[in-house]
Amino acid sequence: MPKVGMEPIRRKQLIEATLVSIEELGLHDTTIIRIAQRAGVSAGIISHYFGGKDGLLEATMRHILSQLRAAVASRRALLDVEDVEGHLVAIIEGNFDRTQLSESVMKTWLAFWASSMHRPQLKRLQRVNDRRLYSNLCHQFNRELPLDQARDAARGLAAMIDGLWLRGALMPERFDVDAAVRIARRYAGDCLHRKP
């Protein structure tokens, strides 16, 4: 019988082991056995806590997504509620936060995106994340723009954030995070200040 209070510790160990394993081996070669060995636990613990590899990948992505939400929320908490452009910048900067830019996290994101096309559980999680980004951007733009323009601006900025992040993840040694943030900020500002 596991010790009381060990579950959160074990879950964290297994999520961290998953991140490192995906970074080093890729998702395909990241097996339950390898994750368990890296975490220093038995393979049965993964099935017990997560139901298997897919459940562990989903939990790992939920962990990464919670870090993303916290990165955005901490920036937005410092802003005046009326500062639309500031809130858009907070969303942009949160998506390029250091928690989203480690090599292990970037490789896990890439593996997640590829896997989400084939696994319903992961596809649902990706849709929730995508809708959250679009909804938050659309809400901010709509405070200054008519709804049809706000929707277009939100789609464009979401695609720009994802695209800039993806290009950086594919070439991490040449990823200029400041330039990516600057480009996305300029786009957001142009959308807000463009005359209808």
Rank of each mutant, 00 (worst) to 15 (best):
S42T: 10
Y49S: 01
E24R: 07
S116G: 14
A111C: 11
A188M: 05
D29T: 02
H193D: 01
I91L: 09
K107A: 12
L137T: 09
P8I: 00
M171A: 12
R182Q: 10
N142E: 13
L65R: 02
D178Q: 10
D190N: 07
T108G: 09
N142W: 10
S116A: 15
R98T: 14
A39H: 02
L133W: 12
A150N: 11
D148I: 11
G51E: 01
L147Y: 13
Q140D: 14
R151H: 13
A17D: 02
A59I: 05
A150L: 11
E7L: 03
E144M: 13
M106R: 11
C191Y: 01
R185L: 05
G44C: 04
M6P: 00
L14E: 02
M160C: 14
R194H: 08
K53Q: 05
V4N: 00
L27I: 02
K107P: 11
G94Q: 06
M6Y: 02
A71W: 06
D130Y: 14
T31L: 00
G52K: 01
A70W: 08
W109L: 10
K195C: 05
S47W: 01
P120Y: 15
L68N: 06
M6N: 00
S135G: 15
R124T: 14
G86P: 06
R167A: 12
G86D: 03
A111P: 10
K53T: 05
A159D: 14
L192I: 08
H87S: 05
F50G: 01
K195Y: 07
Q149E: 15
L79T: 10
G189P: 00
S135P: 11
R194P: 02
T18R: 00
S115N: 13
R186Y: 04
V81D: 02
L88M: 04
L110V: 13
E82Y: 08
F141W: 07
S104T: 09
R132P: 09
R174Y: 13
L65E: 06
A17N: 06
L68A: 03
L110N: 09
W165V: 05
L79K: 08
T99E: 14
D83H: 12
E103T: 13
G94Y: 06
R11G: 01
H48S: 02
L145K: 13
R131T: 14
N95D: 05
G51S: 01
M160E: 14
I33H: 00
G26W: 04
T108K: 09
A70G: 09
L110K: 13
M117R: 15
T108E: 08
W165T: 09
T31N: 00
H28W: 03
L145W: 09
Q100S: 07
Q149R: 15
R69E: 12
L164F: 12
Q13S: 05
A59Y: 08
S104F: 06
Y134A: 11
H28A: 09
L170M: 13
L164Q: 12
H48Y: 07
A188I: 05
V177Q: 06
R132G: 09
L145D: 12
N129K: 13
C191M: 08
L110S: 13
L101I: 09
R155P: 09
W165R: 15
A71V: 04
R76Y: 01
